[in-house]
Computed example of a mutant assay.
Amino acid sequence: MAQEDKFEQAKGNVKETIGNVTENQDLENEGKKDKATGKAKEVVDNAKEKANDLIDKFKK
């Protein structure tokens, strides 16, 4: 999952940069959205992983 999140962030960064250079506001905004979505997914995945680790500790 984490690689997909990083890919989405990278894809967003490329779109944002190209949109900025070409003065294409729609593409730039789409890139910003992709970056934010990828980062949010990464945060959620990290929280799930930490919660599962905590649950495993209580099970032992």
Rank of each mutant, 00 (worst) to 15 (best):
M1C: 10
M1Q: 08
A2R: 13
A2C: 12
A2S: 11
Q3H: 09
Q3S: 09
E4I: 11
E4Q: 11
E4S: 09
E4F: 10
E4T: 12
D5F: 06
D5M: 11
D5P: 07
F7Q: 12
E8A: 13
E8Q: 13
Q9P: 08
A10I: 12
K11M: 10
G12A: 00
G12R: 03
G12H: 00
G12Y: 00
N13Y: 11
V14M: 05
V14W: 04
K15S: 00
K15R: 06
K15F: 04
E16D: 06
E16H: 12
E16A: 15
I18N: 08
G19Y: 07
G19Q: 04
N20E: 14
V21D: 05
V21I: 14
E23I: 09
E23V: 09
E23F: 03
E23G: 00
N24S: 07
Q25A: 12
L27P: 01
L27C: 01
E28A: 02
E28K: 10
N29Q: 14
E30P: 02
K32N: 00
K32M: 01
K33Q: 14
D34W: 02
D34L: 07
K35V: 06
K35P: 01
A36T: 09
A36Y: 04
A36W: 05
A36C: 05
T37L: 01
T37S: 07
G38A: 07
K39H: 06
A40S: 06
A40P: 01
K41N: 14
K41D: 10
E42I: 02
E42D: 14
V43I: 14
V43K: 12
V44D: 06
V44R: 03
V44T: 08
V44E: 10
N46R: 09
N46W: 05
A47W: 07
A47I: 14
A47E: 05
A47L: 04
K48Y: 09
E49F: 13
E49G: 14
N52F: 06
L54F: 09
L54E: 08
L54Y: 06
I55E: 00
D56P: 09
D56T: 15
K57N: 03
K57P: 00
F58W: 04
F58Y: 03
K60E: 12
K60Q: 08
